[in-house]
Write a protein that binds this DNA or RNA. Structure first.
Lengths: 145, 145
DNA sequence: AATTATCACTTGACTAGTTAACTGAAAGAG
DNA sequence: CTCTTTCAGTTAACTAGTCAAGTGATAATT
């Protein structure tokens, strides 16, 4: 007991960072009236629209049920619309959703970018990106099995 | 629009990894009848007991309200007990909680460790740990303001 | 043509988290 | 010796997610 490995320490650091950076993001995005999770989904829709719910679920690594609920909220807010092609529903941004993304995107990007560059050099960021990509792709594969 | 920075890409990779690794962890821990969040809390309690709810909330970076609910669940399961010292409640593991941690700890450690070492060398892990520590401490400070 | 399978999506019951408003005993002020 | 403040913890209303069972129209089978 009580002898942590390097791996478990990394795991913990990443978990804590994610949680904390999410709080920061939500706090920052509050001025625009959306949450970090909503930004994530709207961003994917804006990039890949028209996209089905299933594809979207894969993109944001959320379950079918999860994306269904999230889209219900976003639809209620008037940011997206579902067009049913009997069997699959195609998701697109509404005018309102598109405006919102234009309003928010740059700010959110700047926000995320500055937190990283405030504490890591360009080289360190490149290294971190490489390592995290390796790690994330690995878990992605493990998850599929 | 549509021009992601290195920082935002790192952000996304980390978010996706955390979400996916949480699914893996929950799946793995299912055999022991606990969740990843519960393991996290029980692990902190086991390390720092006796500990107040407020201190525990800080350790697991969760709000006071969040820890209150979580502890209610863990108390119902009989893993922890709250001893009220009129004003603050001191949390300790019960016999059952202690046994559970002895049963699970090594396995969870091995599980986390192996995922990391399956795709990163020892040196890469050291680098990743250093970078993530820097990053996490930075957001921690930002959050306090 | 009637029946069943398929497949995208929804929904119910749950965990886990947030913020903000609310308790209730202890301590300090008058 | 009351009256108010303080402060840990609880709770209500919410977002966000999970899994598993349910829905309903089209496609495939008999």
């Amino acid at each position: 007991m009580r002898k942590n490995t390097l791996g478990s320490l990394i795991w913990l650091r990443i978990a804590r960072f994610t949680h904390q950076s999410n709080l920061l993001s939500n706090d920052f995005l509050k001025q625009f009236g959306i949450t970090a999770a909503q930004f994530d989904v709207l961003n994917q829709v804006s990039t890949y629209q028209p996209i089905t719910q299933g594809q979207l679920a894969t993109k944001v690594t959320v379950s079918e049920g999860g994306i269904s609920r999230m889209l219900t909220r976003l639809e209620q807010e008037g940011y997206i619309q579902r067009k049913q092609d009997w069997k699959t529903k195609w998701i697109t941004l509404t005018k309102k959703g598109d405006c919102k993304m234009h309003e928010v995107f740059e700010h959110q990007l700047t926000f995320q970018t500055s937190i990283l560059s405030e504490c890591l050099t360009e080289d360190e960021q490149k290294t971190l990106y490489k390592l995290m990509t390796k790690l994330q792709k690995h878990t992605e594969i493990k998850l599929e099995k």
